[in-house]
Write a protein that binds this DNA or RNA. Structure first.
Lengths: 239, 239
DNA sequence: TGTATTTTTTAAGTCGACAACAAGTATTCC
DNA sequence: GGAATACTTGTTGTCGACTTAAAAAATACA
């Protein structure tokens, strides 16, 4: 993982009032999701103080918010750490992810505006571009944004919030395993994305649901296969 | 709503290190859910400072957490208020609530332990007792706990968290309208609760789903009827 | 008298410092 | 020499004060 020393410090930057926490929050969140901060690694308030060139108060507030997002865990009176990836609750994660894929896509098919279709299409193209360039980290990020935008078009913020949280967690998982571009899955995803957008634009709820379901299953299988591949690797070490 | 002056101050209480925020958080959360703090009313950090006898820092942290829960809203640089009840997004609320009722009850039917059944039964009895005493506010609270316990038995914390949030929001809505005990609904709920527990214990997923669905519809209809009754009242004023 | 502008006030955002707590480390006693 | 105890260290939790943004009040102007 990234060495704290190599992290860009910005002590001179005089943050505008009210921008402080937002900056810290966004930066740390991104670093956690991109696995630049390892799950389980300690988060030192004092170091962040130096790094962001501000006092502990705004840093602390940002961390409290991250705790609310489930991305950071604080052990009372003793160290706060980046939320570990809990492999035992992966089945529950998959279940919730699949359901939210379906529900948000269904709702999008019902409530989408033409404007939103355009924005979704843009993200679809962004994903296609990332695939063409074989840029894995960009693929993961844009894919998340693509589905988040669809969820937003469904206009139910209860679902949207949970879904974004699940997508973020998925982002960490994919980052964790999906380090090399070595299969044909992205092409399959791209095709499914196209069909998904088409169904949403046609307001075909049944179709949208079906595609979302298949898409979710595909992703779950992908993650599971990476995990079992990883297990096999580790298992071989004990021979 | 409760006058700040009448609120019990506790300046002397020397809270143990680490208990400060928890106390403030729990207290304020409860007051918001019980509508002792009116939706949209300002939350003054300084007043809370006096009331809880501690500095602004822990108060602030509690508020940040409540913002994360969606129970408090902060307008940047200017006032933080108790989250208003947004009537325009009630349909989305109902949709999510219904889905979570179904999903959590289904999962409970699959994953419940005998222990959990016992705890659920206890809460069922608590609800029955509240109905017998015609204690509306207790009914609302115990009902929430009953369903939250079922969700917990389903053992998917993604669903549980969202569901509890929805139940809490529902608690505010019911409090808002359901001030007098004047109909036969509680009896119907009680019956549905019984059938729900039975289905969960029998591990009958289909049945559990059906009952949960009906139960959710019942509650949604209840809230809607209170709202339309309220609308009629307001409408009559403009004549 | 109505509107634009300045002043005041209120509360949020930030800061540096101190106190308390839990581990790790050194020390003492048997 | 080993274990119990005291000390050191690193961080978190809390505090009181200061700074600044934005609303409300007051004033000036047309």
């Amino acid at each position: 993982m990234a060495d704290p020393k190599s992290a860009p410090k910005q002590p001179k930057a005089k943050h505008k009032r009210g921008q402080g926490v937002a900056t810290v929050y966004d930066t740390i969140k991104r670093e956690i999701l991109e696995l630049r901060m390892a799950p389980g690694s300690p988060v030192d308030e004092t170091k962040l103080t130096e790094r962001f060139g501000m006092s502990r108060t705004p840093i602390r507030e940002a961390l409290v918010r991250l705790v609310g997002d489930g991305l950071v865990v604080t052990l009372p009176n003793r160290s706060t750490i980046v939320a570990p990836i809990d492999f035992f609750e992966l089945p529950q994660f998959f279940d919730a992810l699949t359901l939210m894929y379906r529900v948000t896509t269904r709702l999008a098919a019902t409530h989408r505006s033409q404007d939103e279709i355009a924005r979704i299409r843009e993200l679809r193209d962004g994903y296609a571009a990332a695939v063409a360039e074989k840029d894995v980290s960009r693929m993961i990020e844009v894919n998340r944004d693509f589905h988040a935008e669809i969820a937003r078009a469904g206009k139910n913020h209860y679902y949207t919030e949970l879904f974004e949280r699940l997508l973020d967690e998925g982002r960490r998982l994919l980052r964790f395993y999906y380090s090399s571009f070595n299969d044909e899955l992205p092409e399959i995803y791209l095709d499914e994305h196209d069909r998904m957008v088409a169904a949403i634009e046609a307001r075909d709820v049944t179709d949208a649901d079906e595609i979302a379901h298949a898409h979710a299953d595909q992703i779950v299988r992908q993650i599971q296969s990476y995990i079992s591949a990883d297990r096999r690797e580790n298992a071989s070490m004990s021979l």
